[in-house]
Design a protein around this nucleic acid. Sequence first.
DNA 1: CAGTGGTCTAGACCACACA
DNA 2: GTGTGGTCTAGACCACTGC
Lengths: 233, 233
Amino acid sequence: MTSANKVTYRAVKELVLNRIRSNVWGPGTTLPGEVGLAKELGCARTTVNRAMRELAEEGFLDRKRKAGTTVNAFPIRKASFVIPLISEEIMATGAPYRYALVSREVLPAPPWLRARIGLGTSDRVLHLQCMHYAASTPFQFEDRWINIKAVPAAPATDFSSIGPNGWLVTEVPFSDVEVCFLAGKADSALAEFLAMAAGDPVFTAERTTWLQQTPITFARMTFAQGYRMTTRL
Amino acid sequence: MTSANKVTYRAVKELVLNRIRSNVWGPGTTLPGEVGLAKELGCARTTVNRAMRELAEEGFLDRKRKAGTTVNAFPIRKASFVIPLISEEIMATGAPYRYALVSREVLPAPPWLRARIGLGTSDRVLHLQCMHYAASTPFQFEDRWINIKAVPAAPATDFSSIGPNGWLVTEVPFSDVEVCFLAGKADSALAEFLAMAAGDPVFTAERTTWLQQTPITFARMTFAQGYRMTTRL
DNA sequence: CAGTGGTCTAGACCACACA
DNA sequence: GTGTGGTCTAGACCACTGC
């Protein structure tokens, strides 16, 4: 009876985590090899391997061939944020989502944008400004720039009812993304859109996407006052 | 010759990703089961499984038993940020890191803190204020609150040369962390510490840690002007 | 009920890194 | 060289869930 219980990789993770937390294996400790642990726990090495691999991914352990597995002194855990579609983020709160196109124009890429995402001097872009609302409350202002050379269909698309994000995602493949968060200051136009005072701080996210070396789009998204991006680790 | 090549799970990931990106498997597509794919690719099901599992983790696929694996319409990729030690983040820039303790006191937990992290009315906390510099440039102001009941050694510790973060990490285990980012506004005191103008926007990170249900510490970290948190996905 | 993913096993070979 | 993690295999049983 007692022998038939399978040892799951989750159980191994828990066990190792507990030993770390209870300081049985303090920071810096080199813990037994996979084979040893497998024998101790009565399971296959594969199982131990998966447990340890995940713990390493989560930042608790450092693994090196030959050197072995050591307990990370600083749980420099990776915080993983789900970057949801705005519409879903809003609807998750129970409020209805509303989208509005504010402006649209085709123009040569401005120098700051060229430098920022890597465009040539002759490249043209589609510039969109959009608002996203939770019910009637302003939620996010989106400043979107699309590389026309990379997305020729963009200028012919009507963005008055579908947001650029949703459209791009289904139309254009991409391979690399850079996201960056910062605290900005609302200028008077932005303040009006987001129903706040000019000069107020705004939480800002900037996202650039490429397909192989080609820049696809750059978006600056500013959130209404009080926005917090939260995660549990 | 041609037969001996091993099919790695990375290769499978690449292949699947390529089919997704090239729209062979468009959004919503249900792709073949693991057994079928394994046969097609000439590898073990385990290999396919690992590839698909990781792709699902990364947000490209949805997997359900019986229903099968489908291509996610929106690559709601998880952005994972390394939350580095401040000292390391600074030294990575090449600048020397300097730490300074600004103030320290023991006091009853203020109501907002009690509510925020779940303390009782009689709980006392150690309140620290610290500065982190890159060379002589202000980099981060740290407002740190430590639950004395959970960390009795804290009041007896000298934080004038070691930062609370580094000390806590080696002294106190924790099981849960909540991190949250927001844009705040510098009050006059903060502005002076960070060498900016009062009212300027400040990128702020708040971190709470618990050990099982017990709150350990709460930290509000405000960054000097221009700070950006960046990730590549 | 039946099909799909989820996981475990036992064994093997490989690649890397330290001595 | 030699030990440790990295990965692949072939086969098996389980668990969830849609029909």
